[in-house]
Nucleic acid binder design. Sequence first.
DNA 1: GTGAAAGCGCTAACAA
DNA 2: TTGTTAGCGCTTTCAC
Lengths: 343, 343
Amino acid sequence: MGKLERHATIADVAALAGVSVGTASKALNGRGSLREETRMRVREAARQLSFEANAGARSLHSGRTYTVGMITTDTIGRFSIPVLMGAEDALGAGEMSVFLCDGRDDPIREQYYVKTLLSRRVDGMIVTGRRTEARAPIGANLPVPVVYAFISSADPGDCSVVPDEAGGARKAVEHLLAVGRTRIAHITGPEHHNSARVRAAAATERLAEDGLSLVAPPLFGGWSEVWGRQAVGILLAGRTEFDAVFCGSDQIARGVCDALRAAGRRVPQDVALIGFDNWDVMTEACQPPLTSIDLDLEGLGRSAAQMLLAAINGSPSPGRHAHPCRLVVRESTVRESTTVPLP
Amino acid sequence: MGKLERHATIADVAALAGVSVGTASKALNGRGSLREETRMRVREAARQLSFEANAGARSLHSGRTYTVGMITTDTIGRFSIPVLMGAEDALGAGEMSVFLCDGRDDPIREQYYVKTLLSRRVDGMIVTGRRTEARAPIGANLPVPVVYAFISSADPGDCSVVPDEAGGARKAVEHLLAVGRTRIAHITGPEHHNSARVRAAAATERLAEDGLSLVAPPLFGGWSEVWGRQAVGILLAGRTEFDAVFCGSDQIARGVCDALRAAGRRVPQDVALIGFDNWDVMTEACQPPLTSIDLDLEGLGRSAAQMLLAAINGSPSPGRHAHPCRLVVRESTVRESTTVPLP
DNA sequence: GTGAAAGCGCTAACAA
DNA sequence: TTGTTAGCGCTTTCAC
């Protein structure tokens, strides 16, 4: 057979089948009315030539390309991936192909990508990023719909799908209350980070609804294990007693866990511990395994993609949509894991 | 202005500028010889209409789409990402757009993507995956060049760019020897995993070159921290003395580190410790920070993309290409970090 | 220096 | 049932 030199065209197929291109087109797309024998003959010719219709030429008529662009505003990372995957999954099911564009925190590069995507006549775009903060819209009066996923647009009229971080923080607190803890500390990331502020505020608020408050003001620091360990030092140096720690991330929680153990406090007997993000690497390696809040990023991405598909089909969903978080219980908050191992 | 209803065509631009479409085309692409005034007038009209030439229509002539497909054979994960990013980076610089296709370990899905990409007339494809093992070629006699990155093709004639894991393992051993250790243990992932076997064999071989051997047969297990901790238990239960541990991954090394500390052995004074992958999450959280081997996946992806670009331009690089690994020294092998902090 | 016309690969009217 | 034709948006001869 040898390596094919060029793609077969529908003219090649028509010639081989001994019909006109119009007939070949109908046969391959199931349009018009043709003799079954003719249809088969054309199909067979197409198969023989490994014919795949040129999508570009095709979209010249339909006006649609069945492609979408995904732009990450900052470098692709641990949070963008599941979002991208969820979106890719939902779009693939919708027969859409996805252009991946890594913005790398560079607005110039980002605008370049927007132009490129428009020249490729994508049917829509998804914009995502590493942080949940609002960002400037990627463009004004774009000729195609845009959905922001994880990150949100500063324009409230734009469609944004964001994790319900406040709801997640409330679930964390409610879980700690449900297992009988009332003296709760909160250790989290840097105060300038939107997620840290939102989660801390929501936790405080939820406690207030039960007439409680954090045993100490939230400890803002970094998102790292190192900070988790340091923060425990600070907490223990103070006189405040605590029977639970709600952490702004799993990495922090892991650091907290290690430091508590080193200080002779047992988890969960003396201190119940809950993280945020439900990152398997951390929740599994933690001793004991870590209870956490799952952002369901893949579901979020899928949901964003579905909204984009709807918008492309003329039914936009303007505004900010909060995607719910899930509580995942493990042994850092309850003695025995509630999950029953499979037999 | 209001939301644009449709994309402007070159006919719109020509009409607004009061010239023919042919002239407009020349003006916008810098072809032919036109009066400077005309050129400017057309450019201005294009700007006013936010005109972006339809790439699909354009490629109808050029025969090239300036797009490539990236297919991950299995789910996109920690190893595929940097490869994808490096490739996207190199391709973007080459004015190429990238179609992202997540194979999800499903051969059916994978073949579906290959067909889709061919119908979109991509100029080439990059195939990647989570493991370094060889895999069946993605297709035979494809009309466009294919480069395998990280993963490799079972067909030795295909172009594959893979990390030089054996070289990395040798560098790890050489570093341990250089810091004066000779009684080296090796703890790594499952024996059925290609990377585990290759790294263990290379380490053994390198030691043999100096008339040495591992203090015990390689301990194969899982890639997790949990296994690292368990393995230390096994090692200590045996009578064999050791002054260094070479681990098959950073997660294992981290587990080893924690367990050694718990057992009263100091790192690096009593035991020097080196990991593999140079995963920042682990190397930084480890106490002390972990020396490791970096696969330079982003560089590998970039290199693969460049080979693809070359192949598209008629200069293929058939065969298997080993991409070198880098040693990154931190405090788990030397008392004071050799990296000088910036002032 | 500019316009008219053909053609890239395909689909969809309309004829035959 | 099938073939012919026009046209999607663009580039590129070739006349003028």
